[in-house]
Amino acid sequence: MEVLDTKPERTKSRSKYSIIIPTYNERLNIALVTYLIFKHLSDVDFEIIVVDDGSPDGTQDVVKQLQKVYGEDRILLRPRPSKLGLGTAYRHGLKHASGDFVVIMDADLSHHPKYLPGFIRKQTETGASIVTGTRYVRGGGVHGWNLMRKLTSRGANVLAQTLLWPGVSDLTGSFRLYRKSVLEDVINSCFSKGYVFQMEMIVRASRKGYHIEEVPITFVDRVYGSSKLGGSEIVEYLKGLVYLLLTT
């Protein structure tokens, strides 16, 4: 029956997608990103799960207002009392996810929702367990990075590719779509914190033999708010590499 459906855009499978967005002081960004998600996924069954770590700027109030516009069944607010870290934020969001697939993205607009249909299409076409966004291939890219940041990023990437052979081109990107059961499996075997966590997730998934596909994404550095990359992050990254080298 589905052979008659000629429009590839209309998602043939009636899969549901849960989009988990961890926030901390993202009052404006969460509203913008929500609008853009609804704009670009107009014919997809999805829910947005906002995991807010007790932002003092009223992020949760904005989310409640968004719920009134879009519906409480489309936007779920699942706050936590204080800043508890990224890895546990995903675990927390995952507990409340009712979709067949889970998308993980940042609230700060560096991950543009316009790529979501591409993630979904790639998954439907290939049947992959994970679709991960990559900035380092044709069609992808980065904006707003200075030479130092680019150098660090390239160096980190070459080092990781040489030592870990992960089979994906962008390890630290965190814009990804997971089959829910796969995310549950992978997340339970990950123990690191911060953005090493993103790297651990994809390396462990790759080692477990899950089918991973990539789609190009562009990354425009934080429009509102400041970027969180500091000097100690390099040390964290190197420690993460050694950890993954020894444990995966």
């Binding site: 380092y136 044709r138 890219g141 904006h143 030479l147 150098l151 390239r154 990437n157 070459v158 562009t218």
Partner: peptide
């Protein structure tokens, strides 16, 4: 690899 990576680093000002 770092050098080549830097030279062909994909950027997207239009984005």
């Amino acid at each position: 690899m770092v050098g080549v990576g830097l030279m062909v680093f994909p950027t997207c000002p239009q984005e």
